[in-house]
Amino acid sequence: MSDEKWTVTFIVFRKKDEQPVRYDTFTLEVSPNEYVLDAVERIWAFHDRSLVFAHACHHSTCGACGMRVNGVERLTCITPIREVTRNGGTVRVEPLRNFPVVSDLAVDMSRLYQAMDVVHAQAVHPLDAAPLEGDGIRPPRQVPQPEEEGEFLRLADCIECGLCVSACPVAGTDPAYLGPAALAGAQLQSIARNPDLLSVVDCAEGVWRCHSAYECTAVCPSNVQPGWRIMDLRRQVVAQRIKALLGQR
């Protein structure tokens, strides 16, 4: 790799308590291969200790570091600076939308966790619930099963980062909307296997609230494709309702 250095100006959203919002600028020397989160952490370490931001794993498995970078929802720990600006350019960093701001870049994601809890979205599920399609590298399509232990389990794709909720225009006007991640969590379990979910998602705050902007799928960093899953869930709901109707006759 290279020792290439860029000078980049970060324009950072700031908010403390009831004080009005302001934007602070910090000019940093960065490597273009560094990730946006690295720069944010450096701003905290060397420029302004009062900066508040959320992060934990730094490799896209925890979902804590979602922010809006130049207006687009990004998982900052895996967004290379190279992708969002150029040498001498700027990067605008703001908190996610559609959640309350705790302070600066950190938001309160209870709404998402609440919704995930309501649909009992599984954090760990059998491998075949979301198969790995492999993309050419000897895909373990028929994944060999561990002999004694039974089925392989896998941490769910959804890392509960909230990017989809932030990008969803409807989530901004309807705080009670379950949101893309939770509906995707419901779809993965399938209503046929888990009939209790039907009443949770077949309502105004569930699948029918979606207005098909597909922003959730566009920003999801973790291959969940919530937009597609919401639509598939609608299909499941209708199928269940029709079945129930026919069954009652």
Binding site: A54, H55, A56, A64
Partner: peptide, 14 residues
């Protein structure tokens, strides 16, 4: 001083 597990813990290998 940060959110839960922002130090070494969040960034472990796993």
């Amino acid at each position: 001083r940060g959110p839960i597990a922002n130090g070494t813990s969040g960034r472990t290998h796993g």
